[in-house]
């Protein structure tokens, strides 16, 4: 069939060159046609997705406009959230989202990085693979299941084993740990978030630690470094931009997480100094209240909260990108 062995060879790349309608066409045209279809396809995806993004922002912005107009900047500085009195101040939610997420990060990063170091640097292979797999399974548990577990296991446990002793001992001296111990609290929210983001951070950290070039490790070892020194002075610094990236990924997840934290944080729109007190997050208020949002202004206020959550998430990601960029530059130049 084929005029020259060359073109036959080129066609064989597709695996089924000799069958199908397209093989009627000369091979060059066929290749071009496929390329063109492919180019149109990916180009349109490249255009459609940013458009979709813009459209979402636009719609939320339009819906939030009445609230933006009637409250102005007071919306983000006021702590009063009273739908009945048509008073809407989002600060408690902003505070709750940011504080619970960063607390979660503070708990999760040491855990996840430690786990990743153990798995890549120390653990024997027969142990590393199953432990890594089990950790990654944590990410597969649905959010609502975490929430249920939080309500029935984590919260009672934290209340009796952590919060009550903490309030009794340090509570008087340190306002962050002041009682009473509600159980459903900022702390419970942060803990459940941290468990949820550990798999992401540790997976990324493991990935970047594995990617540290062998010659870097060998250089340190050949100079008489111990395993410990090699890990901390060479492997971790080399992998640091990636580890930061993993932490940011985790932070992004924590900021947006809704169901699980809603079920354990207590959902009280207050800014409490103590992390043993209940809080509220932006995602939680959206999930809890959109169905009962009577009146246009109420719905509009929720839309503005959504817009803010969106904005904060983007802001955090931008800052994170800059951070990663700076850290990776420091090594390079």
């Amino acid at each position: 069939m084929r005029p020259t062995p060359d073109s036959a060879g080129a066609l064989d790349l597709s695996g089924r060159s000799r069958r199908g309608l397209l093989s009627l066409f000369p091979s060059r045209t066929r290749g071009n046609l496929a390329d063109q279809v492919y180019a149109v396809l990916v180009r349109s995806m490249g255009i459609v997705l940013p458009l979709l993004f813009g459209f979402i922002v636009l719609r939320i912005g339009v819906a939030a406009w009445p609230a933006i107009r009637s409250f102005g900047p007071a919306f983000v500085t006021s702590t009063d959230w009273n739908p009945v009195a048509r008073e809407f101040g989002a600060l408690p939610f902003i505070y709750g989202t940011v504080v619970s997420s960063f607390l979660a990060l503070a708990i999760a990063v040491p855990l996840a990085v430690g786990l990743a170091i153990f798995l890549t640097e120390l653990a024997p292979r027969w142990l590393a693979a199953p432990v890594a797999f089990a950790t990654e399974l944590l990410a597969a548990i649905p959010s609502v299941v975490y929430g249920l577990w939080g309500i029935f296991v984590l919260v009672p446990f934290l209340r009796s084993a952590v919060q009550e002793p903490l309030a009794a001992t340090l509570g008087g001296a340190i306002p962050f740990f002041a009682g009473p111990a509600y159980g459903f609290s900022m702390m419970s929210g942060a803990v459940i978030l941290s468990i949820m983001i550990v798999p992401f951070i540790s997976a990324v950290t493991r990935e970047v630690l594995t990617a540290v070039p062998r010659d870097q490790r060998e250089a340190a070892l050949a100079l008489g470094a111990t395993r410990w020194e090699m890990t901390w002075q060479v492997a971790i610094p080399y992998a640091l931009p990636g580890i930061l990236g993993g932490a940011i990924l985790g932070l992004g997840r924590a900021l947006g997480e809704t169901v699980a934290i809603t079920m354990v944080i207590g959902n009280r729109p207050d800014i409490a100094r103590s992390i043993l007190a209940p809080g509220y997050t932006m995602a939680s208020v959206l999930a809890n209240e959109f169905s009962e949002a009577t009146g246009d202004l109420y719905l509009s206020a929720l839309m503005e909260v959504a817009l803010l959550l969106f904005g904060i998430t983007i802001l955090v990601n931008v800052i994170a990108q800059l951070l990663v960029w700076r850290v990776s530059l420091r090594g390079g130049r």
């Binding site: 060998e218 250089a219 050949a222 100079l223 008489g224 111990t226 610094p237 090594g331 390079g332």
Partner: peptide, 20 residues
């Protein structure tokens, strides 16, 4: 092994300076 390697310097095929 650490003491052993202290007595033995090594230069690798591909130069591998630390990013410092």
């Amino acid at each position: 092994v650490v003491l052993l390697r202290r007595r033995v310097g090594m230069v690798f095929q591909k130069s591998n300076p630390f990013p410092k």
